[in-house]
């Protein structure tokens, strides 16, 4: 079973973690100022790429912290994990450097 590297605890098996949707989508600071279409887009539309994807994960059966990850949706392998405050990685660069 997949090993995932929690930025706080190190490598743990996948059953300790919970997926938490696409990353880098902050809650709008002023929801009232969004149109209905914009709000619905925030609520429901998410990317579904074939390839590298940025996601939130939580080490729910461990330290309980949320963190971000880049996962390859084809192979299911994690390319990297990083803390919430870290900068969003350049996926194009990551994809180019990948072994498979």
């Amino acid at each position: 079973m997949l090993l995932i590297r929690c930025p706080f605890c190190g490598e743990r098996s996948e059953i300790e973690f919970r997926h938490a949707g696409e990353a880098h989508i902050p809650r709008p600071l002023a929801p009232a100022s969004l149109s209905d279409a914009e709000w619905a887009d925030y609520l429901y539309n998410r990317a579904n790429p074939k390839g590298l994807h940025v996601e939130r994960w939580r080490h729910v059966h461990g330290c309980g912290r949320f963190f971000n990850a880049v996962r390859d949706t084809i192979s299911d392998f994690f390319v990297m994990t990083y803390k919430l405050d870290d900068q969003r990685p350049d996926l194009a660069q990551l994809a180019g450097g990948q072994r498979r």
Partner: peptide, 11 residues
């Protein structure tokens, strides 16, 4: 609790 943690940690 999970939802509360989510907002507290990430927002």
């Amino acid at each position: 609790l999970h939802m509360m943690e989510d907002y507290l940690q990430t927002e």
